[in-house]
């Protein structure tokens, strides 16, 4: 397990070095993601411990936003006077974005991807009984 943690940190560090060099446009974690993916693709297999590590980390992904989010609460008075229009613009914009993106993926997905993919019925079937 230690080896896998080190692996993730190593790719992240390389991403950080690339980002700090100013020659590479991607944020460090995104570069790290690409490097780890490339390594897995070249090796052609996934170490068990790495799978477990990723599962655990992503299971609590939401928690990782809490410290930064609490800072936002501390900053709420920054926009006291304009709170309503800002909130309305942010919520409205988010809803519009979700809807438009989803319609595009769905429309294109139906014509291109689903016809090729045998597993998609299972996914759609499962979707119906999930309230989530």
């Amino acid at each position: 397990m230690l080896e896998q943690i080190a692996r993730v940190l190593l790719w992240l560090s390389l991403g950080e070095i690339a980002a700090k060099s100013g020659l590479w446009p991607l944020p460090a974690p995104v570069t790290g993601l690409i490097l780890l993916y490339a390594e897995l693709a070249i090796r052609g297999r996934l170490p068990d411990d790495l799978g477990i590590l990723a599962d655990r980390l992503l299971q609590f992904l939401g928690m990782l936003f809490v410290p930064a989010g609490v800072g936002v609460i501390a900053y709420l008075d920054v926009f006291k006077t304009e709170a309503t229009p800002i909130l309305a613009a942010v919520i409205g914009g988010t809803a519009i974005t979700l809807f438009v993106t989803m319609v595009v993926v769905n429309r294109l997905g139906r014509t291109i991807a689903i016809s090729r993919e045998p597993g998609s019925e299972r996914v759609e079937g499962a979707a119906r009984d999930v309230n989530a």
Binding site: V8, L12, P29, L53, L57, L58, F65
Partner: peptide, 20 residues
């Protein structure tokens, strides 16, 4: 709380696993 915050970077890298 910074120790939790720090994990955002490694978690993003770990997205490579389900992607793979």
């Amino acid at each position: 709380a910074q120790f939790v915050h720090f994990l955002l970077g490694p978690a993003t890298v770990a997205l490579a696993v389900p992607l793979y």
